[in-house]
Amino acid sequence: MRFFNPIYVILGISILLYVEVYGSDYQYDPNSIPHISTQKLKNIISSGNEAMLVYFYGDFKECPECQRLLPKFHEAVEYLHKLDDGKVVSYKLAMKFPEYGVNTLPQMVLFNQDTSFLYDGTGREEVWEVNDVLEWVEEAKQTPVQELTDETFEHLTQSSTGATTGDWVILFADRSKAECLKPHLPVMGTVGLRLRMRKNVAFVDTSTSEAVTKRFGAVLPSTCASLLFVKKIEVPMKHARGNLLAYSFHRTELYKVPMDEFSVSTVLDFVLDGFQKVEHMEVPKVQSEPNPHLEQLMKTLNSFIEDYGRTHTVQAFYLAIITLLVLGVIGFLVRKFRKRKIL
């Protein structure tokens, strides 16, 4: 379900007016968008100070689609620069970029601060039209893919209680290894974009969030990168007579998302429908971490009890003897008093 956004209305009207004035036969200048080196691209991504739209392509003889889609990229960029005053800088790079999941050509990726988005229109020329690309860019700029940590995971997801934070698509990946986290982020970004306002998309760095990683370790297919889907189920409550009540309770189901063919379409197909065809798992319970202060207090208390028992053993023995003697005397006096009363 798409939600109405006035930004897209304005974009659409602007595009129609531009086409009406300048005509639909677009002629592009191949030198209007500069090329960028791999090292400069990495530096800009690391700084996070610049929003970039990059077109990755190959040799036209070996990649006819690269040549066919390049004019559409130029046209979309021209409109984009006019509408957002150059806030998104555009480049071209004539090679793959496996570090961020660009393993096939052509591809278009938006790098926006610390989030990247892989355009999911490759192979379908019709969706490379100006309005589709611009809508994708605008939605991407409003779609953060948040990181979940040991401190925030359960608070935000409520995965163990089934509370009302919605469904979650969560990537567990090791940031310390180049092949684990970064190559999957562009797909996760666009998955978040396509599911915006319907489902939550996030990632967990398994190299730093040790508690969460340990909690889900038994169900993670890989320690490098694994994708889990946490589905919230609303269960209606029934009265003893069988009538539905006005309230219900929630529970959660956990699914492993296949990553054999990891793409925007395969992830969306699974979380929107495919999960119903596989068995779900139970969400691992929250593992309570030991409190060091409480442990120290318990050790101190146990030590005190042991010391007290050792030093007061003799006193306790004599106290028990005296107690028994007193009870014996009281019993003797009671029996004697009863005999006198009878006589």
Rank of each mutant, 00 (worst) to 15 (best):
V201W: 07
L181I: 03
E139H: 15
E138F: 14
T157C: 00
H184F: 14
T164D: 08
R198G: 01
E154Q: 07
E151L: 11
K177D: 13
K141I: 06
D174P: 01
G162I: 09
V169D: 13
Q142G: 03
F153Y: 07
S207E: 04
T161S: 01
R175S: 11
A178I: 09
T149P: 04
A178E: 14
G192V: 11
L156S: 12
Q158I: 12
P144D: 10
A202W: 07
T143R: 14
G189Y: 06
L195D: 02
G162H: 12
T164R: 06
W168S: 08
L148D: 02
R198Y: 06
T164Y: 06
E179V: 12
L193T: 08
V204N: 01
L193M: 06
P186D: 13
T143L: 07
K182W: 11
R198W: 05
M188A: 06
R175A: 12
P144Y: 10
F153G: 00
V191F: 12
L181W: 03
D174K: 08
H155L: 05
Q142S: 10
S207V: 03
A178T: 10
G166W: 09
T164W: 06
T152L: 00
G192K: 09
E151Y: 11
V187Q: 02
G162K: 10
V191C: 09
S159C: 09
G189S: 06
L185Q: 15
T161W: 00
E147Q: 15
L156V: 11
K141F: 03
E151R: 12
T157R: 01
T161E: 00
R194E: 15
P144C: 06
T190M: 08
T152H: 01
E138Q: 14
Q142W: 05
L185E: 14
M197A: 10
T164N: 05
L171I: 02
A202G: 05
L148N: 01
E139R: 15
V145N: 15
P186I: 13
A202F: 07
G162N: 10
F172L: 10
L148W: 03
S160P: 00
V201D: 02
R175P: 03
M188Y: 08
R198L: 05
Q142L: 09
S159E: 08
A173L: 05
T149Y: 07
L171V: 03
V137Y: 10
K141H: 08
F172T: 10
Q158K: 15
M197W: 11
L134T: 08
A202I: 04
T143F: 14
E179T: 14
L171S: 03
A140P: 12
A202V: 05
G162A: 10
H155F: 04
A202L: 06
T206C: 01
W168I: 02
Q142M: 09
L156R: 14
V137W: 03
F153I: 00
T152V: 00
V169R: 10
P144S: 11
S160R: 03
T157D: 01
V169K: 13
L134I: 15
Q142C: 05
A202K: 05
K182N: 12
Q142F: 07
R196M: 00
T206S: 02
S176K: 14
V191Y: 11
L195G: 02
V145R: 14
E138D: 13
W168Q: 04
L148V: 01
M188Q: 07
D205M: 08
K199S: 04
